[in-house]
Design a protein around this nucleic acid. Structure first.
Lengths: 142, 142
DNA sequence: GTTCCAGTTGCAACAATGATGCATTTGCAA
DNA sequence: TTGCAAATGCATCATTGTTGCAACTGGAAC
């Protein structure tokens, strides 16, 4: 768990001021199991009264500085996670499963993908983000 | 190549009136190699003066009727193609490759996906759309 | 502790895509 | 030819992303 002081240091070492909204955004993202979107963050911090453009720029600025990683899971929103989100979640290193009903995103373990025919070189190099869409178990049962 | 008469029949057998805008939309989609988005269609028919909400409803209504298939290729827009777009392109039956630089979408041949660990049942049943994102060859070279 | 100013924020506003209500128009069947 | 349900045109709203600009503030210099 990162302390408030750690988060301030994180911001300052990236030449960003340690403002209240940035700290709040980092606290929200820290420990989140999957990347959060701007709407997610806005909703989570709604009671604090910060303007959505402030939170938007908090996210984009921290992503530009390298503190956050911006990922596109294909659900029509940009998502952000701590760039040093060690271990578990590492952006596009593993496939994501997106439920087309509830929108929930989950992480899958590394897959083997075998594709026949001619494909872009990036595919064979593993330089691709893989996403599967379908109904999650909860929505399948519902 | 479907004739104008064929398209009128297609609409009427689905209980939809054969209006000029619907025919125009079908003519645009017919023969298109990959699914077109609402903005694509609006732009293609700009000179005809149809309202974008008319074209929007043309697409959604024909998709609801089963004439069109709506696919989500993950590029933040809904795309539509003729539902009987035989052979080549069949919605989500095969994986798509989306270039994150130029936005171009291409079709890949069927893949084998092997995933370890616990996954949603839909994955093992093959009820998932698979998408790979990365740089296409042209953008890799550029 | 006080001051200062570049970095931030709050607010307004715009763009693109998706979506809907409603009065007017029109396809098409009787 | 006519009547009416279906479809259109127009206005309008929601969501996400984005930017301009005046006011405010973090934090370094003093």
């Amino acid at each position: 768990m990162l302390s408030d002081s750690d988060l301030r240091d994180l911001l300052r070492t990236h030449d960003l001021r340690a403002t209240q909204s940035r700290l709040a955004v980092l606290r929200i993202l820290h420990g989140q199991p999957s990347p959060s979107s701007h709407p997610d963050v806005t909703e989570a911090l709604a009671s604090n009264g910060w303007d959505r453009s402030t939170l938007y720029r908090n996210l984009t600025d921290m992503a530009a500085a390298g503190i956050l990683r911006r990922v596109d899971l294909g659900d029509r929103v940009w998502r952000y996670e701590l760039a040093n989100a060690s271990t578990q979640h590492s952006g596009n290193d593993h496939p994501h499963f997106l439920c087309t009903a509830c929108g929930d995103v989950s992480c899958l373990e590394k897959v083997d993908v075998t594709i026949g025919g001619s494909v872009p070189a990036a595919v064979n190099l593993g330089h691709v983000a893989i996403q599967l869409r379908g109904l999650c178990d909860a929505c399948t049962e519902a």
